[in-house]
Amino acid sequence: MFYPNSPQTSPQLTQIPYGQQYAMMQRQIQQPYHPFATTEPQARLYPYHYQGPIQQEQGGFITQQSTAASPQYVQMRVTPVDQSIMSGYPNQTANGSSSSSFNYNIHPQQQQQQQQQQQQLRHHAMPVGSVPLQDDRYRKQLIVNYLAPDVTSTDLHELFSRFGELDGARIIYDKQTNMSKGYGFVYFCHAEDAKEAVERMSGYEFHGKWLKVGYSTNPLNIVPSNSSPYVHAGSRGAAG
């Protein structure tokens, strides 16, 4: 039997160049792979992502010199942007860049009308829970959420009447099932009393439920100042 490094198959040491006398086997001759043993700084910083320098080929596509990437890492192929796409944008300079302001050559009167329309939209648009300043009635009506099913309009009136005089209180019921929808409205005579009720009743436990109280901004629920107070009856038909 002959071994790869046996004296019968191995040459004389004098015939082997210096430095390879003890590297006779194939696994010894093959050098191990060192990912950080390279002179390129990109490979030292990113050993798993770097795959060699990027070269520009004919046709405008950018390719990489090395083989496919590892399945664990996804390499994105980048193509140059066609400058003709950006030619339609206004205020574009000769080098292809555009300024931040756009001039669509709008007539001054049209621009003024658009600004007025935007101001009107901001004036009428009102986020949930906010209180408008032009109508004091919005500051007097509250919406009470997360009410228990057994709470009546009379219970709601008695709960909030300790903060001040009320114009009314009612629970909203479903017309088909005649069941409470879980929320109601309270109408105060003074805005200061309503503000105190919002601050003190939010998070209050009532009939096993934690109440959420806020201003009601729905104009359909506003009680006119010259109208008669609501009837605080315990029956659902009268309260709904």
Rank of each mutant, 00 (worst) to 15 (best):
Q58Y: 00
Q115I: 13
T67V: 10
S161L: 05
W210E: 01
Q92E: 15
Y73P: 09
H232N: 12
N5R: 06
N221D: 04
I171M: 08
Q120C: 01
S227T: 10
P53H: 08
E40L: 09
R236I: 10
C189G: 07
V74S: 07
R137S: 13
Q31P: 14
E199T: 08
Y18W: 12
N178C: 10
P127E: 03
N226K: 05
Q114G: 04
V144N: 08
K195D: 09
F163S: 07
P11L: 12
G234K: 04
H107K: 12
S70R: 08
Y215Q: 08
L121N: 11
Q51K: 06
E158V: 07
N95Y: 13
M179G: 13
Q42W: 12
L159N: 13
N218E: 06
T67P: 05
Y46A: 08
L45S: 03
L211G: 05
E165F: 09
L220C: 06
E192Q: 15
K140Y: 00
T152Q: 00
D136N: 09
S227R: 07
I29W: 15
L156H: 15
Q117P: 06
P224V: 00
Q28C: 03
S216N: 00
M24A: 14
P224Q: 11
H190S: 11
P32Q: 09
Q55W: 15
P35E: 05
T217Q: 06
L211T: 08
F206H: 01
I62N: 03
I85C: 10
V186R: 06
V223W: 13
D167R: 02
K212L: 01
Y204I: 06
D167C: 06
Y204H: 06
A233I: 01
P11K: 00
T79I: 12
Q112G: 08
L220D: 02
Q109A: 02
T217W: 01
N95Q: 10
Y146T: 04
P149T: 03
G184V: 10
E57K: 01
Q134Y: 15
S130T: 07
Y73N: 08
P149L: 05
K181P: 15
T39C: 13
D135I: 07
A191Q: 04
P35K: 08
Y230Q: 09
P47R: 07
P132E: 14
L156G: 05
M76I: 14
D136G: 05
Y3P: 03
T14W: 00
G52E: 11
V198R: 10
V198I: 06
Q75G: 07
G208H: 10
V128W: 02
K140A: 10
Y138T: 00
E158Y: 01
Y215P: 00
P108S: 04
F163N: 00
F36W: 04
A197H: 04
A169V: 04
Q114S: 07
H190E: 13
H34W: 15
K209H: 07
S6E: 07
A191R: 02
Q114R: 05
R77D: 03
H124S: 11
E40N: 03
N5W: 08
Q65E: 13
L142G: 13
S101E: 11
G234M: 11
R122G: 06
Q15L: 15
F206A: 11
L45E: 04
L121C: 06
N218W: 01
Q141R: 01
G52W: 09
P132T: 12
F36H: 01
Q113K: 04
M86P: 02
Y50D: 06
A239K: 12
Y215E: 05
L220S: 05
I106D: 13
T63H: 03
T79W: 15
S180L: 07
Y18S: 10
F185G: 01
L159Q: 14
P224Y: 05
G184I: 05
Q64P: 11
Y173K: 08
P17G: 14
R139Q: 10
T154F: 08
I29Y: 15
K175C: 03
F102K: 13
N105P: 03
M179S: 05
Y183Q: 12
I106M: 06
W210G: 05
G240V: 10
K195A: 03
S202M: 15
Q55F: 05
H123A: 11
M126D: 09
T39Y: 13
T38E: 15
